[in-house]
Design a protein around this nucleic acid. Structure first.
Length: 615
RNA sequence: GCCCGGGUAGCUCAGUUGGCAGAGCAGCGCACUCGUAAUGCGCAGGUCAGGAGUUCGAAUCUCCUCUCGGGCUCCA
């Protein structure tokens, strides 16, 4: 529960203004009011502008406009709009709420087609009793009037007057569509942020700057981990030696964990004939997400967008006994998906991705136990990386689906039960399931708060039917197994991106390509430094050495910028006493005189435990 | 895919009204041999994303393509 705090703003104007709002709700009101003032400013500067909607969002607000004659905002326009907004704030106009009936509303907003559409929706909702997200149902609507005659259709509430906006800033302009659909007119969206004090605004802007520094795309370049060669194509990454080493360590972790948890490795090719994807339903329901077919020997081959159909074929290769179930097939499977050019985003959304994929075939009565143990596996995996700030979502049957709605119901309830018995908070996302199954998704936030789906588990009753899967039960009869799709990382690439941002590039020691750099103080300490590198290598660790061609301070700085977890300095005293000076990442004062065997044992133990910083 | 904004050395960025393409860092060479976040000097580095056009002359203006960023939609 959010703490109820005294209002930083003062009172708010509207029916909900009963003083019970949380701080976040107050900020929502402040931001929504700022959006109104922005709309007012835009109306002054571009008379004839059509207003769409202007809600508050996390940390800010936006407003969608259709400018007269299809004009577009430019970056410089934001300065103008801000200036006008400041004027309106100075004028301290009151926000006056007024309830009017539908007929009156249609007259007031006669020249505002988007508002009219909303009013129509309210009217219809009033008739049907249907709930609408953006408006209260009913036979009347509310509007807010400001001093100079600006009127906006709005549910409210608002701050009492325009003077109650202590600090705001417009951030960027973007394109959008009316009601988010490409079929509708395109609009101009302006994003901004507003806070109850200048200090909080500055803090927020500073946070945004800091977040930019941990953007995985930027770290990827700075740390020489990966890049996207245009010659290969959009959304297709190459991993450089250091980046690939990190990736390998992640994948090794995944393999080890799966083998220890009762999964069986499989391997499947990257392409298959259309026959396979026709049976699985992919060509019917997912074709727009696939690379186009390749003609070969009279067949059409597709790159696989998912691993499931191939895993199904492994199951189906022979008759299965109930004794084999649950059968957990696991593969780091690389799949290819056509993602629209505008949605690609570094490693977080690519066109070639490797899933830590498993398909579990089980008897119906094994399902609850299996789902519970998958959830546990997911949580344990996230905990290993210190990822605590996640959100679970239960996604239900989408509009485009295969199978019987009754099966969907059964599968959805099984997932819900798993969440409830694990005591995990979740939200329901109606209609967001895969075309073949409902799912539980786990979402993680990146550096700037964008949410990305990572782990998912899906209960699939369709694929077993489509492929006629069977097993022989205790009763010597044929039965159909259930099938669960699940990933823990989601895709290695996306998880990699999330981890880079989570750790701001300072990966836990066990995920670092190089564990320590040994720095000889003078050239004549190099032999001793190399001895330590060799000793570490014999213990399975990866150390390197940089010759004393530059001052020690410069080499220390370089190693720090490379975010190496350990810098080991060796000089006269160390050669004498067989010790090293330990400079640990994130600390300022080095520890002198640590035995060379001791530091190697320390680092080794850290790696063996998958330790996070400070553990 | 759609809207907006970008693309100049490996990286970060200057580049005036159209008039000889620059800096810092990184790289390479030489000197320095140093105890915990930048030693000095020198060298090299470019089809100004690509193509077409306007012009005596284009990094600069126009058009097209590619690509990146912010959104919309979509999703691991």
């Amino acid at each position: 529960m959010e703490e109820v705090k005294p209002s930083p703003i003062g009172t708010i104007s509207g029916p909900e203004g009963d003083g019970q709002q949380s701080l976040e709700e107050w900020r929502g009101v402040l931001r929504h009011s700022t959006a109104h003032i922005m709309a007012q400013a835009v109306m002054r500067l571009w008379p004839g502008t059509q207003l769409a909607i202007g809600p508050s969002i996390a940390d800010g607000f936006y407003y969608d406009f259709k400018l007269p004659n299809d004009q577009r905002f430019k970056e410089e326009d934001l300065v103008q709009i801000e200036k006008e907004m400041k004027k309106i704030i100075k004028e301290n106009q009151s926000f006056v709420r007024q309830e009017i009936n539908i007929e009156q509303a249609k007259e007031v907003f006669g020249d505002q087609p988007f508002k009219l559409e909303i009013i129509d929706a309210v009217e219809q909702a009033g008739a049907t009793g249907e709930f609408l997200e953006e408006v209260e149902k009913g036979n009347s609507v509310s509007l807010y009037k400001n001093g100079d005659g600006f009127v906006d259709l709005c549910r409210g509430p608002h701050v009492p007057s325009t003077g109650h906006i202590p600090a705001f800033k417009l951030l960027r302009v973007a394109g959008s569509y009316w009601r988010g659909s490409e079929a509708n007119p395109s609009l101009q969206r302006v994003y901004g942020t507003a806070w109850e004090s200048k200090a909080l605004l500055d803090e927020h802007l500073y946070r945004l700057e800091e977040a930019e520094k941990r953007d995985h795309r930027r770290l990827g370049v700075e740390m020489d981990l990966f890049h996207f060669p245009p010659e290969i194509g959009s959304g297709l990454a190459v991993f450089h030696p250091k980046g690939a080493k990190i990736r390998m360590l992640l994948e090794d972790f995944s393999r080890r964990e799966h083998l220890e948890n009762g999964y069986e490795p499989v391997w499947t090719p990257h392409t298959a004939k259309s026959d396979l994807f026709a049976i699985s339903g992919h060509l019917g329901w997912y074709k727009e997400g696939m690379y186009p077919g390749m003609e070969l020997d009279g067949s059409t081959y597709y790159l696989k967008p998912m691993n499931c159909p191939m895993h199904v074929l492994i199951y189906k290769d022979r008759l299965r006994s109930y004794r084999e179930l649950p059968l957990r097939l696991y593969e780091l499977g690389t799949v290819y998906r056509y993602e629209r050019s505008g949605v690609l985003h570094g490693l977080a959304r690519v066109r070639a991705l490797t899933q830590d994929d498993s398909h579990i075939f089980c008897a119906p009565d094994q399902l609850p136990q299996e789902l519970a143990s998958i959830l546990k596996f997911i949580l344990k995996t996230l905990a290993t990386f210190g990822l605590k700030d996640f959100q679970a979502e239960l996604s239900t049957r989408p509009e485009k689906y295969v199978g019987d709605p009754k099966d969907w119901e059964l599968a959805t309830e099984a997932l819900r039960d798993a969440l409830i018995s694990a005591g995990i908070d979740y939200v329901v996302s109606e209609g967001d399931g895969a075309f073949y199954a409902p799912k539980i998704d786990v979402h993680l936030k990146d550096a700037i708060g964008r949410k990305w789906q990572v782990s998912t588990m899906q209960v699939d009753l369709q694929m077993p039917k489509l492929f006629d899967l069977e097993f022989i039960g205790k009763d010597n009869e044929r039965h159909q197994p259930y099938m669960v799709h699940r990933v823990l990382f989601g895709s290695v690439e996306r998880f990699y991106a999330i981890l880079l941002e989570h750790f701001a590039g300072a990966m836990p020691t066990w995920l670092c390509p190089t564990h320590a750099r040994v720095l000889p103080v003078r050239n004549d300490h190099e032999d001793y430094a190399m001895e330590i590198v060799a000793k570490a290598k014999a213990e399975g660790l990866s150390f390197d050495m940089e010759e004393a061609n530059e001052p020690l301070g410069a080499r220390v700085r370089k190693a720090k910028l490379e975010k190496l977890p350990y810098i080991l300095v060796v000089g006269d005293q160390d050669v004498e006493a067989k010790t090293v000076g330990v400079n640990l990442r994130g600390t300022n004062d080095p520890e002198r005189g640590v035995g060379s065997g001791e530091i190697i044992a320390r680092i080794k133990s850290e790696i063996d435990r998958y330790a996070l910083a400070g553990e």
